[in-house]
Design a protein around this nucleic acid. Sequence first.
DNA 1: ACATTTTATCTTGCATGCAAGATAATGAAT
DNA 2: ATTCATTATCTTGCATGCAAGATAAAATGT
Lengths: 138, 138
Amino acid sequence: MDISKHPNECIFHLLTRAARRGGRAFKAAIEDLGLTAVQGRVLNLLWVMGDARATELGEQVELDSATITGVLDRLAVLGLIERRQDENDRRVARIFLTPAGNELGQKINDRVVPANEAFLDGMTENEVAALKKFLKQL
Amino acid sequence: MDISKHPNECIFHLLTRAARRGGRAFKAAIEDLGLTAVQGRVLNLLWVMGDARATELGEQVELDSATITGVLDRLAVLGLIERRQDENDRRVARIFLTPAGNELGQKINDRVVPANEAFLDGMTENEVAALKKFLKQL
DNA sequence: ACATTTTATCTTGCATGCAAGATAATGAAT
DNA sequence: ATTCATTATCTTGCATGCAAGATAAAATGT
């Protein structure tokens, strides 16, 4: 199949479409908790990691420093996280969950597995494993 | 593998990361032409389709009407496209490439296949086919 | 014909996404 | 110690991404 005349064969096109659909599905899964998809992913990631540096979170969710700063700002305003200067390296902003953030992080976590299953409905376990393997190596 | 403790197993996480990497790769492939990744994809799509309604373009690239409006605005300012009211249905904005847009659309198209190959380097043809099939059905 | 509903696009407001550059603190080299 | 390079974060400016709602034109129902 010739990509040049079939946009649907272009990997960039396909990845963008799939990611947007996934983003909407995840957003729908956590919408009632009052967070956007990105905020939810960052909060859940922090819940899994315990605490982390701002840049570390950004790397995990593939956001650059400019973007993660804004996301953390909003999570802080919502009272879900706290920024504390690292004692050993005062350049570092160490991020902690507040009790409210911890609670919400866990709630999101409880929904991740069902949301994944719903989104991947129709694919066999082997197919899902293959898809994930491909996505990881890109 | 338990997703709840391993963000890297979450399909939303994996799709977002892969799509962002793809976006950067595509952007790098067309950067010297002076367009963003989204603008490039829309212009190339229009080049393939000949002409199209605004909404039609938005559906293809998975952008909603609010977003596609802005993208088309910028492409129009750059002198690459023209908006003409459809004669049969005056609600419809029919989008046409200008000569400059047509030329640029083709240049982008010439780079799509090489950029795909570079990005998918390391995967076999069968793996690529499987990946695309999965992405299409999500 | 007229009111209602639907459709295509645009507008507004806010949240990413990212390039480029500013700032401050650490580390390395002399 | 002082200079230089590096690192972590933040700021600015502009381009998506999208919810909600406005607007105008077309289709539908009575």
